[in-house]
């Protein structure tokens, strides 16, 4: 097994610098998800690990060893592509076997491995079939089996679930978590879908414009976002963020942290507004409240209000987040935290 380290890595495509002086360590045996909007550099990082698009400068280490000069096929990594990249002219068996043949694994051993893996992913009956006769989910499994059979120390996955329908995606998510537990290899998973990131990751690495915004386990990333971008990228609907007056600081709260009531409470944040839209999703209802200071999304477990109704949006002190002028999180321990809280309370309760 192996950890992965980026040391002052930069990557440019035709003089256009996508990633600059990036440092990152991906822990051994962990399920790490690289997430961010499209064009943020997450796939570029993944391809650097694979060696498909080597870095322009800096070094990439796998298991403590600099792999900058090692060919993709010799790095001990396997990759699952978004479009699966199955070899269409080969049977399922040949697809799974191809890497083993190239690594000169003996025939008897090869057969044993292929049969074992194909049984594990439910493809045993399809071994002699051509990929074109398989469904999307089955092709996905061929791609997974092809990666697994090489027993790599690092698994790289580039949005492997995005071509599946919603139901199958949820199922595959669970299977991938189980697979990770079983194999104990280092998983690096790229997605733009924050739900996938939250549900599968041990550690999320959130990127934007080639810069790492935050690197944390899902719960920490959700509860203590380190800046405004993280706060608004993770979570649906995103965190409500508003300005805090002249200082340029910002306050924020999650849609589910707010309480709607007909009378004003004594929370530090409390504003009056009108319900503009109501989305009833079954187990929860999402309201959009329009107020003098802005629009706020509020998620409630109960469906008590109707569109057009006048309500108060209240947020308790513990659920409030503050961000400085530079959009970085202001921690509870910092002196400016109290000032922000005062400013917000003053604004809400005049």
């Amino acid at each position: 097994m192996a950890s992965i380290a980026f040391k002052r890595v930069s990557k440019a495509f035709d003089k256009h610098e996508v990633i600059k002086d990036l440092d990152l360590t991906i822990e051994d045996g962990k399920f790490t998800v690289l997430v961010g909007p499209s064009g943020c550099g997450k796939t570029t990082l993944l391809r650097m690990i694979a060696g498909l698009d080597p870095q322009t400068s800096g070094s990439v280490l796998i298991g403590g060893k600099d792999v900058s000069r090692i060919a993709p096929g010799k790095r001990g990594v396997a990759m699952v592509f978004q479009n699966y990249a199955i070899y269409p002219t080969m049977s399922v068996r040949e697809n799974i076997e191809f890497g083993l043949v190239n690594n000169k694994v003996r025939k008897a051993e090869r057969e044993e491995l292929v049969e074992g893996i194909s049984k594990a992913v439910g493809l045993y009956e399809y071994l002699e079939r051509k990929p074109s006769t398989l469904s999307g989910g089955q092709r996905q499994r061929v791609a997974l089996a092809r990666a697994m059979v090489k027993k790599p120390s690092v698994f790289l996955m580039d949005e492997p679930l995005s071509n599946l329908d919603a139901k199958l995606r949820v199922q595959m998510r669970i299977e991938l978590i189980e697979l990770h537990k079983k194999l104990g290899a280092t998983f690096v998973y790229v997605t733009h879908d924050q739900v996938e990131a939250m549900s599968m990751a041990d550690t999320i690495v959130l990127m934007n414009k080639g810069v790492i915004q935050q690197e944390a386990p899902p719960d920490e990333m959700y509860r203590r976002p380190s800046n405004r971008f993280t706060a608004q990228f993770i979570g649906t609907p995103p965190m409500n963020v508003g300005e805090l007056g002249e200082s340029g600081s910002l306050f924020g709260f999650r849609p589910e942290s707010a309480v709607l009531s007909e009378a004003q409470g004594d929370e530090p944040f409390s504003v009056r507004g009108v319900i503009a839209t109501r989305e009833m999703l079954g187990s929860e209802t999402i309201y959009q409240v329009r107020s003098g200071s802005g629009n706020y999304m509020v998620k409630c477990s109960e469906d008590l209000f109707a569109a057009g109704q006048e309500v108060y949006v209240g947020v308790p002190a513990a659920k409030l987040h503050f961000f400085g002028e530079d959009e970085r999180r202001i921690d509870e321990k910092e002196s400016s935290y109290g000032k922000c809280m005062e400013a917000l309370r003053g604004r809400s309760h005049g």
Binding site: L52, A71, M79, A85, I86, G99, R146, K150
Partner: peptide, 21 residues
Amino acid sequence: PEEIVEAARLDNAGEFKIMRK
């Protein structure tokens, strides 16, 4: 697709093998 060639490179196939297979 580029990915098919890349997948083969990750499968440790040389360039002539990629062409042939």
